[in-house]
Amino acid sequence: MKSGSNLERILEGGQFAVTAEAGPPKGSSPKVIQRKGELLKLCCDALNVTDNQTAIVRMSSLSGCVLLKELGVEPVLQMVVRDRNRLALQGDILGAAALGIRNVLCLSGDHQRFGNHPAAKGVYDIDSIQFIQMVKTMRDEHRFLNGEEISGDVPFFIGAAANPFADPFEFRVTRLAKKVNAGADFIQTQGIFDVPKFVEWMKMVRDRGLHEKTHILAGLIPIKSVGMARYMRNNVSGLSVPQEIVDRMADAKDAKEEGVKICLETIEQLKEVEGIHGIHIMAVAWEDIVPRIVEEAGLMPRPVV
């Protein structure tokens, strides 16, 4: 075991994993994260705590992780290279290790231009792939980026993101390979609406044997309304929302129900795809729906390993 985390045990045990997102609040109250933890505790194997998501300042992801851990929920620590240089990143990794955090998701982060501090100076000292490699070296070789030795263990299950829908499409698999080579133990993908395109991508992934070197968790975003569908289609870079989905949402009597239906259908299709080892549900501001989705997808109860 690299980290001994619940997520690692489930995936290494060959079981279908379920993770979800629990965004921290724009405030100092622990309650928000605690409520999400309680809500999702039983239907997920681990919960991702986002790191100033979409470049909007929130409670730090490390603190969120600690709050979850106190509840007995396993956190995935998301970290972006936008806000911290190599010193801060390594320091936080050590701190997280000390606090018993075992999963980390290494990300580039959305550009600060879109957030609530667009005038901020972006750091981008290292990129996400170099970050993955750095954490792996810390874990496996007990060394900092500069080669100096680290005292103590840095046991992390290292995750990375993948976006099969961004351009250039052909490069997307190469980039995944790079992440895997850098040391990504698991992958959480961008939300999937365009299943055929995802399937095509997975085929390329399998052609390179990557599905055997890492655990791929397919991303899902439950949609609440046609407005949300349209917004994502038009404004979120790197998301591909087919017109068919938008139309279904528009025509539906009960949009929320339709959203759940779409999500469940997608999960059904994804389960069939070879190399998919789990799902990752990003129900931004609609966490309440996650237990129902996991239940109706037939993924309950969650295994205890």
């Binding site: 550009h111 990129d127 996400s128 870079s237």
Partner: peptide, 26 residues
């Protein structure tokens, strides 16, 4: 590159444009 990435495009690259603006090439 808006993020000074050294290992290829981030997940925001779309239609040859950078995630920060449709007027900026990726």
């Amino acid at each position: 590159c808006s993020k000074q990435l050294l290992n290829g495009p981030c997940g925001g690259s779309m239609n040859g444009k950078c995630e920060i603006s449709k007027d900026v090439d990726c």
